[in-house]
Each structure stands twice: as C-alpha cells, then as structure tokens.
C-alpha cells in the first residue's frame, strides 16, 4: 500500500478549475516530483493534502486512512508535514526554537522522557544550521530559511513530507547538497513529495515525476521518461506555431 494516495481531487475557486480529477501516489522511501506550468495546481494540491483547502470531491489517503475530512492539525498529527513556497517561518523565534516547537508538538505528555532537545540538535547539525541555531529565523538569507522550514517539518517526524519549492533562493552548491539530503530523508521511510521549478533538483533527486497541467496529471514516470514526453513539451512550450 502506498504511503500517500490522492484520488480524483476536484477544486474550484470561483469559476476557475484549480484541480480537475487529479490523482497522485507517493511511496515511502521515494522522492516523488510534481512539476508543471504556472497555475497547473501544484500548490493547490499541497493545500488540499495538508487540509488548508477543502476539495469539492476526491480523497486523500495516508497509510490506508482517509484523512480528507480531518482538520489541518489532525493531519499534522497523522504525519503529514509540509513547507511553504512563501516561507512561513516563525520570525520571532530563533532557528532552534522553530524546530523545538514542532518537535514538542509531537511529544506526548506521558512520554516526557523522549529527548526532544537532542533530536532537535541532531537535526540542526544534519541541516547545517548548528552555527545559526541561536539567530532569529527571519534574519537569515533565503537559502537557510528554506532549510529551517525543512528542519521544522522534519522535527515533527513526518510520514509524508511535502516540499513546496525548497530550492528557490538556494545557490547551486546548496541545491546539490539539498538533493542529497532529500534522498537521505526519503530513505528513513518517509514519502517525500517535491514541487519544484529547479529542473536540476527534480531530475537529480526524484524517483518518479508527475506532470500537472490545467489541474490534472498529464504524465507520470521516471525523470528521463518525462523529459522526452511530447505532451509534456507542449504543455510547457505551447503547441502554437513554431517559428
């Protein structure tokens, strides 16, 4: 059974069809890519999975449990964590506190022995944030902010991790090390879903790529297959008159 299954989602905003019968599957241990032109519905799909947008129809299933009608908070408890395209960091907290607040939420009152602090320190180390752990989160450059968001999502011990454009604002070297990190995270039995414009990151880290266009999944396959799909090319470049 797949970790995350999204089936036949339909979302309308006013007259605009944001998602039109969209279905994707994400396996634990895999990085699943989600690409597509502007307005294809990628962020809307994330919003539906994390409960910020209610679909008109369709289902979201995690580990066989239907979470379509759960509140965002309960989905978070069910193991769905995410990052945001337009950073949603806690600007008045330090980097360490940003991770702590997420880690503590996962901690049950009964098991206060669980060493939250040690886990957070480990994550800071792993994400290369140890040196800036005491700084206010928003005082950092964008590339680091993205990492803090990823760290915060990881601190919640997710089973499904949704990453919305994590490479935006990172330089080439950072992007490369980020791809490695993604592979490691997935290897820890997490289903990673990645929305990204940076083709190098998508092609370099994904096991499967879904191409979304006009609210529906146009193609799905390995990065190599997708790159050479004619339907995908015309979705990106338009079918108009070639000069």
């Amino acid at each position: 059974m797949a970790r995350l299954t999204v089936e036949h989602l339909v979302v309308r905003f006013g007259g605009c069809q944001a998602l039109d019968d969209a279905s994707i599957v994400a396996e634990a241990g895999h990085v699943t890519g989600l690409i597509g032109p502007n307005g294809a519905g990628k962020t809307t799909l994330f919003n539906v999975i994390s409960g910020l947008v209610t679909p008109k129809s369709g289902r979201v299933v995690v580990d066989g449990r239907d979470i379509t009608h759960l509140s965002p908070t309960k989905r978070g408890r069910a193991g769905v964590a995410r990052t945001f395209q337009r950073l949603e960091l806690f600007g008045m907290l330090s980097v360490r506190e940003n991770l702590l607040v997420a880690a503590e939420t996962q901690q049950r009152w009964a098991r206060a022995g669980d060493d939250v602090a040690a886990r957070v320190e480990g994550l800071l180390e792993r994400l290369g944030l140890a040196d800036v752990a005491g700084e206010l989160a928003t005082s950092l450059p964008t590339g680091l902010c993205r990492r803090v968001e990823v760290g915060r999502a990881l601190a919640a011990k997710p089973r499904v991790l949704l990453l919305d454009e994590p490479a935006a604002g990172q330089d080439d070297a950072e992007t490369r090390s980020f791809a490695t990190l993604l592979r490691q995270v997935a290897a820890d039995d997490v289903a990673v879903v990645l929305v990204e414009h940076d083709v190098r990151l998508v092609m370099g880290s994904c096991d499967v790529v879904n191409v979304l266009d006009g609210g529906r999944v146009l193609a799905c396959g390995t990065p190599d297959e997708v790159q050479h799909d004619d339907a995908v090319l015309s979705a990106y470049l338009g079918a108009g008159r070639p000069a």
Binding site: S50, G51, R77, A81, V101, E104, A156
Partner: peptide, 18 residues
C-alpha cells in the same frame, strides 16, 4: 514558543499538528 509560532503563522503550526 507555541504562542509566538501561532502569531506568525497559524497555517504552519497546524501542518505539524499543533
């Protein structure tokens, strides 16, 4: 920490189950 986090982004707080 929770209060300050909630102040900055309720949506982000919800996504990790607060």
């Amino acid at each position: 920490r929770r209060l300050l986090a909630m102040r900055d982004s309720e949506a982000a707080c919800a996504t990790f189950g607060m």
